[in-house]
Design a protein around this nucleic acid. Sequence first.
DNA 1: ATAAACCTACTGATAGGTAGATTAATACCA
DNA 2: TGGTATTAATCTACCTATCAGTAGGTTTAT
Lengths: 198, 198
Amino acid sequence: MPSNDTKTALLDAAEKAARTMGFDGFSYADLAEDVGIRKSSIHHHFPSKAKLSVALMQRYHENFQAVCSEIDANFSTGGEKLNELINQYRARSDDGKRLCLCASFSASRDSLSPDVVHQISLFRAMVIDWLTGAFEKGQSDGSISGVLDPALESAAALSLLEGAQLAARAEENSALFENAIKLLKLRISVSNPLYPGR
Amino acid sequence: MPSNDTKTALLDAAEKAARTMGFDGFSYADLAEDVGIRKSSIHHHFPSKAKLSVALMQRYHENFQAVCSEIDANFSTGGEKLNELINQYRARSDDGKRLCLCASFSASRDSLSPDVVHQISLFRAMVIDWLTGAFEKGQSDGSISGVLDPALESAAALSLLEGAQLAARAEENSALFENAIKLLKLRISVSNPLYPGR
DNA sequence: ATAAACCTACTGATAGGTAGATTAATACCA
DNA sequence: TGGTATTAATCTACCTATCAGTAGGTTTAT
């Protein structure tokens, strides 16, 4: 029985560590202590830190993409979709204790393998595309006010969300995340989504 | 003659390294090679990496505060002030090769000394205050459109600017910074033809 | 029997930091 | 003016801890 338990536990520990301390801030020794095996045993599952980070980023990409699909399946208006994505970034901020993996890895760019650098681009493109769709929807159904250009809104929103995580992280205070996104949230209409308006 | 040359050169090298690779991403060996002295000699100027980072953050704070004062002395409208601050963050992005020191240190928060953590709060408060003033001015003089709440605008703008640096850093592409801030720039009125803005 | 999973024990490189000698620039003083 | 303390600045040489990673043996489950 190929027990994925340890492998998953290692990925969980690595993701938490990377998002808390950055790629250069955690070591195999940290993961070993967290998971409860010897650090040399980690190499059985992930032969190098570079390959671990590739697996980390791939899982993160797939997971986030699934979340976006889930949102699409459960929410119809652009405003609702945007609001749900904001909730995702809030959750991943963990009260200012962490950043999302994409933001954390971006900051440590020079220490990453070329594969991960490329994966970051793919991840960002995926999120930007999804967000652009949400803003297009919000523009046409009137659930997001003042949308001039969905593509530009998307780029701005992603930067705002990652920047808001950074703000909360700077002082380990979730209120700073909320403050940073408040104006964006105010643009989301809270009217009955059954009445798209305009 | 107390030669500040080496000390300044060390701070310059450390700031560049920290903003490029993060606090955990550079070592005394890197600085030594950059400046051209032995790494043990660095301890004569900065006995520990913690004290170096304190000096780094202090110089950064003073420098940035001076820049803000300079802007206030040379530009009168809120829109012009905001535009100049955007220019500062663009310059500090270095075409996606670096982040500002505040953003970089925030990401490596767990590796910093308590002093530096506190300095980050002070720095952010200073920038937020200044930005709030700029938005208040822009609201009253009409040079920034759609200002509802200057304090919220300020928090959002700082997160957007740091997030835009992160976006550019993610792909080492300055166009991502420009894309992220474009909508903010569009809110700045370009009424004065002498300062057309970018 | 086989193979995955994990272990002990190790490696070379590098981390931040220290000890103590040497060099270089300044200050004092006859 | 020349000589001598003094101090800043840098050096060589070393320390201990930790880093990612390897070699090879042991356990465990099929």
